[in-house]
Design a protein around this nucleic acid. Sequence first.
DNA 1: ATGGAGTTTGACATGATGTCAGAGTCAAGG
DNA 2: CCTTGACTCTGACATCATGTCAAACTCCAT
Lengths: 131, 131
Amino acid sequence: MKIGQASKTSGVSQRMIRHYESIGLIPRAARRDSGYRDYDERDVHTLRFIRRARDLGFGIEEIGKLLTLWHDRSRASAEVKAIALARAAELERKARELDAMRQTLEHLAAHCHGDARPDCPILADLSRDEA
Amino acid sequence: MKIGQASKTSGVSQRMIRHYESIGLIPRAARRDSGYRDYDERDVHTLRFIRRARDLGFGIEEIGKLLTLWHDRSRASAEVKAIALARAAELERKARELDAMRQTLEHLAAHCHGDARPDCPILADLSRDEA
DNA sequence: ATGGAGTTTGACATGATGTCAGAGTCAAGG
DNA sequence: CCTTGACTCTGACATCATGTCAAACTCCAT
């Protein structure tokens, strides 16, 4: 099948399919006489794998490792688990960070009248003198 | 003071100070005869304001609005509050998204032996057939 | 054969930031 | 006065994953 179909059935944009090929995340696609890229079910399967991994927050480099492990039938699951748990820890760290920001903002907003008066603790906090 | 000092006391890198100037977030800095940028306390104060806003997850565009409101003594606090609450809501959305990813990964990892055996539910999930 | 849809490559853009290079400036010490 | 090292200037390139646009080419159905 051609790239449009591969894109639709895998959920990966044509742009990113070509990109993944160009950075070597996936092998160069087969070509028809016309020059069009040609994909089979296995290729689409790989693309779906990549999309799901991206949905779970894995970076391209990590996905490369996962693909290698996926293709290695004798791999040890320990490696995969370690990568997944490292990602989970990083996601938690980021989520906590965002949550701390949110709490600060909500706290400040709660003390802001939010009416026509110019007094605003939010701006006062942002412009306070201390480092 | 010169840019190095302004950077140190504001916590904004020299690179970003120049960048903020180039995109018009802050006005063009005064220049000495030498061509060096020259900052005063007020400039540094503004830079600190920007840094704190970035730390709270505001994007450049929002910071531009906040700066305008900050400088407008007759502003209504309602606008500031709305911007802050919108940011808080967005931060919460993102945090939830990361948390959902983390939960999925931890769930998968919990069912992965994590030993020398090749069986791995994590890879099985990533490569499953359904969309 | 013609037209519209699909594909190709390459370039440019995003957002916030880092880094590097080459050239100019400044201040302190000999 | 000159040298040296620290500072600053601009501009360019890199990141990361992604979008979009354009010009040229291919495919397929009528």
